[in-house]
Nucleic acid binder design. Sequence first.
RNA 1: GGACAGGUGGCCGAGUGGUUGAAGGCACCGGUCUCGAAAACCGGCAUACCGGAAACGGUAUCGUGAGUUCGAAUCUCACCCUGUCCGCCA
Length: 428
Amino acid sequence: MHDIRVVREAPDSLREGMRRRGKWDSLGPLVERAVALEGERRAAIQATEEKKAARNATSQEVAKRKKAGEPTDDLLAKGRAIGEEIAQLEARQVAAQSELDEILVGLPNITLADVPEGDETANTVVRSWGTPRAANSVKPHWEVGAAAGMLDLERGAKISGSGFIVYRGVGARLQRALVSMMLDLHTKEHGYEEAWVPLFVNRESMTGTGQLPKFEEDMYALRDDALFAIPTAEVPVTNLLRDEILDGARLPMAMTAYSACFRREAGSAGKDTRGLLRVHQFDKVELVRWCAPEDSAAQHELLTGHAERVLKLLDLPYRVLLLAAGDTGFSSAKTYDLEVFAPGVGKWLEVSSCSNFTDFQARRANIRYRPASGEKPRFVHTLNGSGLALPRIVAGILEHHQQPDGSVKVPAALASYLGADRIAASAG
RNA sequence: GGACAGGUGGCCGAGUGGUUGAAGGCACCGGUCUCGAAAACCGGCAUACCGGAAACGGUAUCGUGAGUUCGAAUCUCACCCUGUCCGCCA
């Protein structure tokens, strides 16, 4: 959500922000409409408040006269007339306000200055780690997984539908091992507080982090309750501090949470339909940070490093992409994607997306901090990143660590959690 | 799910439809006193928005939303949340 003051005082920054995302054609008219509405709104507010002041004065006069035992009929009539005028002015104000809100809540965040302009072709690799194996030099993960008895995609489809996965045997155990390994790393070495959160949240929470109102189609909703299945733990975790004023001395705050994530993947039919690359329910460990505005750029690098650390421990070659403005998510001001190379499918897989939301989510969710006692509250900056998403990590492991005999070597850091240093080629 | 009770400032807590933004207390800040502290006493102490260079003025806010009224913390309705008891339940 953008500050209404930006609309009034710096509309050019809003215009430039939309243009840099390549969205001027669709969003430009909305920005201009917002600027006009803000003027109408202010005029209506001023007129309304004048009338209300008059009404209050009249009411007080009524009280005075009643005390003195004087007649008040003329004042009552006057008050009624003012009341009608107020009702009309308020209707104008509410109309302008609600249209304005609707526009503002639908405008994406303004990207930071160091984010390249343009669409995804302008994404840039900022660094990479490890040596990827040659594309198509190994079997794709779904073949290895099926042979090893780890994956049961057919039965997942039977009980829920396509895009729902059943892990079995060592596959199921691998999920648990990965989650434990990541949570231990982030809590013990990176200083995050662990949280375990609801998988269903209300509309306010979804709006707070920016999933609503624009992306309602992408989410699962319950039929009989006003709840949505979370697409990421970012939503419940970030909203934990909604409508709160944090102690500035306690910033930055950091929480990590494992959760299942649910995505309808509306509009992505036909893409990555095989294996684990795009599914409706998956597991993820999420990292969330809250900090002071001047600190968020550094916090973003820190958080990205925490996610990268998981990939290093899993010994998976990866690259870090700085997303161009047009490819940066709705709420984000700057995003790094971490991609792992999966030689079996011959593709770079996005396994983490680390974003700085500046005050965009904080404004929507009303998360503030008091810099020092006695000072006024300011909006925090929020950040989050996957640390990491499991299915594509599993794909990466099954492909990158695949041995010639079809077995899979388990990275040392994970072996103790899995209780094995190798996944056999067949379930035996 | 049923029956009650209740939601007021950072906290506790009063509040007959008419100077109630809201008594009182606690906490907090400043001062007097003191060698210093405590106690006591005096004073201050909500937020947002609008106008204004400022002083200051205006508007709104007593769970949320609507309604009645010249005027609502106070009356009406709906919803949300909390507590207690009963029922059900992993």
